[in-house]
Design a protein around this nucleic acid. Structure first.
Lengths: 273, 273
DNA sequence: CGCGCGTTTGAGGGCTTTCAAAGAGCGTGG
DNA sequence: CCACGCTCTTTGAAAGCCCTCAAACGCGCG
């Protein structure tokens, strides 16, 4: 068991298992989370500092590694500091369905606060560093700050809405539109944390993982990606996504970002000029 | 605008638009809701009576009628008193994806408390009566009773988990399994409100609506229904669903009811003996 | 009885899958 | 520096699940 450390104890340098864990990396993730929550719920200064003071346990996960098991009891939530993490379900025949994808600044399983039995284990899509926050601490904050309780509740609702949007995507759109929609969502969320710069962002997710998120096969994802590329909508090479035609991509995916409850992506940020 | 009435004002007889609205019908729905919430969150007596005292505005909706529009602002949540209601999204080509199905005792859009802009309009699958509860009143209860706030939050999380399970169903199972899974869920939820008696329950949902929930076409739903019938798993005629082989149906749908967070359906209730 | 709605059936087509194998990128080690 | 192995991407051909289009059927109801 790792010892808990607060942000101000996190000094630059090696912290555990030889992984580097700097102060900026830790508080940066929490700052991203707070900024996102703030756009949806507006916290006061008190609440923001309370969140920043949360004790966290850093944890590094290698790509493709699973975290937690179905039904298992957990007593902490996971904030993504670096890398990409998904929640997924596994079927009897071994096939997977990814139910959500998370980037830096996301708390992957805030819902576990209310239902501590894992419904969907976590999957590190890339090498990732997480910051585990004890449920007890989060509950303490929620009790002391009504605004935080409401904000957490609202975050859970937004997460649910996103899953619903994915259901629509998978249930009623063809493969090409599904992929376009996923890329649009990724772009908007990346933009919100400042990762999307003039239509470019790091996109380290494999086509197999995309397939598991969209209810498709990797082979077909590959072909659809080529279609979108041939249509001059996006370009994806070397783990970098470039959006060539934001409006076009949105149209193909019938993408309306309102369900994300994030600031609207400006066209300058959305695509290369 | 309709006037609000509290349960003890609801006397048997005609209330509005010629629809009959009896005391028992109203409080019965709230009792069902409380009972369900109680299995997931355990309320105290105080909180239960507070919920029962909520003022409601009854509203009747004809089958196939939509309620609300995408993006619209709402200031009340809808408790289902009678009939079946769904949430859905509509695509540009006119196709629909039903995102959740609700029965008596469900609050269809509790999430609207936290995000009052409608993400998925409501659809009356059958003729239905709803009880609208003002957000202001619900928030008042949540503020005064910490247990109710937590319970509502938890309900939202469960709703999200159910949608995630649907996403898995639609994304990674074939049509036959999808249908089996949906029927299983319907049976368990019906059992919880006492509507499933020895494997039989009222099932007034059309195959077109099932198709919209499963991401299929009505024609294919029909064929899959025949398949399940020919396998002696279920029988569906005259709007009545009969479960012939609960274990078999569960196996086909890979159904594990834990995501519903409801009491386990006993085998006696689940199927005809 | 005729109408509306929902279910059922048939045939053909298409989107996506499956299976298999080759190609590209990248870190490792000789 | 290149070979090697690994992962991920790409390509091809054939099969399959589900869709589309149409029309008939059954049933409740005015």
């Amino acid at each position: 068991m790792l010892s808990c450390v607060s942000y101000n104890m996190l000094i630059s340098g090696r912290s555990r298992r030889g992984e580097t864990m700097s102060l900026s990396a830790g508080s940066e993730a929490m700052r991203l989370f707070i900024a996102k929550v703030d756009t949806r719920s507006s916290l006061n200064a008190d609440e923001r500092t309370a969140l920043l003071g949360l004790r966290v346990t850093p944890r590094h996960v290698h790509a493709h590694r699973e975290i937690g098991r179905f039904g298992e009891h957990v007593e902490h939530a996971c904030l993504v500091a670096e890398g990409h993490v998904a929640r997924f379900a596994q079927l009897e025949n071994g096939s997977r369905q990814i139910v959500s994808i998370h980037i830096a600044g996301d708390v992957v399983d805030l819902h576990s606060l209310m239902l501590p039995s894992v419904p969907t284990p976590l999957l590190a899509l890339t090498s990732a560093s997480l910051l585990q926050v004890a449920h007890a601490d989060l509950r303490g904050l929620a009790v002391r700050h009504a605004g935080i309780a409401a904000a957490f509740w609202r975050e859970c609702v937004v997460d649910g809405n996103i899953v619903a949007e994915w259901l629509v995507n998978v249930g009623r759109r063809d493969a090409r539109a599904r992929l376009a929609h996923l890329l649009c969502e990724f772009a908007v969320r990346s933009g919100q944390i400042g990762t999307l710069v003039r239509g470019r962002c790091f996109f380290p997710i494999t086509q197999e993982q995309i397939a598991d998120a969209l209810g498709l096969t990797p082979v077909h994802v590959n072909r659809m990606m080529q279609t979108l590329r041939s249509e001059r909508l996006v370009q994806l090479s070397q783990r970098e996504l470039t959006i060539l035609d934001w409006e076009g991509l949105r149209r193909v995916g019938e993408f309306d970002q309102s369900y994300l409850h994030l600031p609207t992506l400006s066209v300058e940020d959305a695509q290369i000029s």
